[in-house]
């Protein structure tokens, strides 16, 4: 294991300065739930020191700023799970954080860390992308904004500007008539890496047609992005099992197109299509005659988690 130094930053400005000290290769350390694992496995590359940003007050907390919801980058998963504001305006983000299902991690892991680490199977990025969330990034040249979707470049690759530090995320709260869901498929119920995860929102018009649907699948594309092709298919249509099955088939084809045939594709393609159907049934309720008993496993249903 490499040895390296440790320094704690007291403010965002100090953190940015420390991360950009010439001649010192520094890494930001928040909860450490990804970084320390990578260090032990020899996969973190070499660096001289960590800059601990976990106690910077301005990096933490969840609040409304004007009409936007704002989450500090060093806010932990546990704080997100407990936040009344998140429960009210973007419950599926709390669900994604909760899907880790072990307090040892949720008490330490941060939203900014989950995005910056950019693991393909990470659970909160699909939700942030589904929300069209923006990241606010501090750099030596000042603050800038980037959509979370464009921050994620691929597995363990982000597009953060050099020396940049994610400070916060902002998004428009979901309207009261928008339903949302987060689904996770893992090999067990806790401490499990997502084989597939999925964030979806949906809103119906008064006449029952689909006003808007958003769908983001994680862990099966090179990076999480809104499935605009599927969203377009759904737009303006009436919810039906047949439509959702078509949506599932479409996303399945898109996945194979993008990542090709892998050892796991035979399974993941089918499971992905099934999860699309399940997610859409949750956010775009079928007419009563088409409803079937849907009870979630792998992740507890949204209802039972509260």
């Amino acid at each position: 294991m490499n040895s390296f130094g440790y320094v704690r930053a007291g403010s965002i400005d100090e953190a940015v300065a420390l991360l950009n000290t010439p001649g010192v290769n520094s890494r930001a350390l928040a909860g450490g739930t990804d970084l320390m694992v990578a260090v032990r496995a020899g996969e973190a590359g070499s660096f001289d020191r960590v800059v601990d940003i976990s106690t910077i007050p301005d990096l933490r907390g969840i609040a409304m700023v004007g009409s936007r919801a704002r989450i500090g980058a060093a806010t932990t998963f546990s704080e997100i799970m407990r936040s009344g504001l998140i429960q009210q305006h973007a419950r599926f983000l709390a669900d994604a954080a909760h899907s880790v299902r072990t307090m040892q991690i949720t008490n330490m892991a941060t939203l900014g860390g989950n995005v910056a680490n950019a693991a393909a199977a990470a659970d909160t990025p699909p939700v942030l992308v589904c929300l069209d969330a923006e990241a606010i990034i501090a750099t030596p040249a000042g603050q800038q904004r980037m959509p979370v979707a464009s921050l994620l470049r691929g597995h363990l690759k982000n597009t953060l500007p050099a020396g940049g530090l994610i400070v916060a995320f902002e998004f428009d709260p979901l309207s009261v008539d928008t339903r949302n869901t987060f689904l996770k498929l893992g090999r067990r119920n806790a401490l499990t890496i997502s084989r597939i995860n999925m964030a979806a929102t949906g809103r119906l018009q008064a006449d029952g047609h689909i006003a808007e649907a958003r769908l983001v699948a994680g862990a099966c594309f090179s990076r999480p992005r809104r499935a605009r092709e599927v969203e377009a298919l759904l737009q303006g249509r009436l919810p039906s099992a047949a439509l959702f099955a078509e949506a599932g088939q479409l996303l399945m084809r898109l996945m194979v197109q993008e990542v090709g045939q892998r050892w796991s594709t035979e399974y993941k393609a089918l499971a992905l299509a099934a999860m699309v159907e399940e997610a859409l049934e949750t956010v775009l309720p079928l007419p009563a005659n088409e409803t079937e008993t849907v009870r979630s496993i792998g992740v507890k249903s949204v209802e039972s988690m509260r």
Binding site: L185, L270, A271, A273, A274, M275, E277, E278, G298
Partner: peptide
């Protein structure tokens, strides 16, 4: 779960 094969 008949769509994913997950057994609980």
């Amino acid at each position: 779960h008949t769509g994913t094969g997950r057994v609980q």
